[in-house]
Simulated assay, not measured.
Amino acid sequence: MKLKLDDNGNVVLQNGQPVYVHDDGKEAPFDAAAAVIKISALNREAQGHREAKEAAEARAKLFEGIEDAEAAIKALETVKNLKEGDLVTAGKVEEIKSAAKRAAEEQVAAAAKAAAEREKTLQGDLEKLQGQLHGELIGGSFSRSKLISEKFAIPGDLVQARFGQAFKIEEGKVVAYDQAGNKIFSRARPGEVADFDEALEALVDQYPYKDQILKSSGANGGGAPNGSHTGGKPPAGKGNFGGNKEDRLQAIKSQFPDLAQP
């Protein structure tokens, strides 16, 4: 292909474009601007193909040694399914852990509730036993008191009704407190707590109506009043000191009205 020249040796132009004569004798104008654009496009296309080829070669290197592509794909699917199975298994593990935690918490709560109920029952039994012990130790002390049998004009249960609240059980022993809340100590054994009769005698000494509940010098040996007592109040004739508790209480109220006062 060569430029077409006129008789003067100048390049023949067609629409401002030089005319070329091809090897087969055909003539055609050459559009240089279009050619540049086309060349640039072809270069870009070639570059794209080259980069794609290089990327494909790089990816192909990752699969070097793999001859059976179909088997490789199946293996990848197996691995994928295995990973999904692992996720499912992990979810099941968390579910099992949560269920076990809830079960443990429920068991602990049930055990705590049962322990609280058992503690409440034991506390009730303990209070009942303490009440029985209190009644036996303190009530027995009143019923067995030599001081009451010898010096009191009223039965022991009535003495207990008036002075029983002053006695408590401490470390298995009967201990008395005076009206000021002070523990009563023995005069015969300094530093030691007074025994029952000594403490009761101290309490009676502080009682303003003691002459009405103690035997007078002229009382008979039966423990009942002799018909006259300090204070000059005649017996009302109600109740019976030799009867049951209700009769004795009525008798003491009628003959010693001040005893009913706290």
Score class of each variant (00 low, 15 high):
His49Trp: 03
Ala109Met: 04
Ala58Trp: 13
Val36Thr: 12
Val204Asp: 07
Glu127Gln: 10
Glu54Cys: 00
Ala116Lys: 07
Ala69Ser: 04
Ser145Ile: 03
Asp247Ile: 11
Gly172Asn: 09
Glu106His: 03
Phe152Ile: 12
Leu13Glu: 15
Gln212Cys: 01
Val175Trp: 03
Gly65Tyr: 05
Glu70Leu: 06
Gln250Thr: 11
Gly232Thr: 09
Ile66Thr: 05
Lys83Asn: 12
Ala28Val: 07
Lys53Glu: 00
Lys38Leu: 11
Glu192Tyr: 06
Gln160Val: 06
Asn244Glu: 14
Val174Gly: 04
Glu84Gly: 02
Phe152Gln: 09
Asp7Met: 06
Ile213Ser: 04
Ser228Ala: 10
Asn8Met: 05
Glu67Phe: 04
Ser40His: 11
Asp86Asn: 08
Lys233Pro: 01
Ala166Pro: 00
Gly242Asn: 15
Lys168Tyr: 09
Arg189Lys: 10
Glu192Ser: 10
Gly239Phe: 07
Thr121Tyr: 13
Gly218Pro: 00
Asn43Arg: 15
Ala34Cys: 00
Gly85His: 05
Pro155Glu: 03
Ile148Trp: 09
Gly48Phe: 07
Ala112Gln: 15
Ala100Asp: 09
Lys215Met: 15
Ala71Thr: 10
Asn8Cys: 02
Pro18Ala: 14
Pro262Tyr: 09
Ala114Leu: 15
Leu42Gly: 01
Pro234Cys: 02
Ala56Trp: 09
Ala34Gly: 13
Asn220Arg: 14
Gly135Ser: 02
Leu87Asn: 14
Lys173Arg: 15
Leu214Asp: 04
Leu249His: 01
Glu201Val: 10
Ala110Arg: 13
Leu87Thr: 14
Leu200Tyr: 11
His49Asn: 05
Ala109Phe: 08
Val19Pro: 01
Gly139Lys: 04
Asp157Cys: 03
Ala109Glu: 13
Val36Gln: 13
Ala99His: 05
Ile184Thr: 08
Gly172Phe: 04
Gly221Glu: 12
Asp125Glu: 07
Glu150Ser: 10
Gly164Asp: 09
Asn220Trp: 14
Arg59Cys: 11
Ile96Gly: 01
Gly140Ser: 07
Ile154Val: 13
Leu62His: 04
Phe163Leu: 08
Leu129His: 09
Glu51Ile: 09
Gln212Ile: 02
Glu198Thr: 03
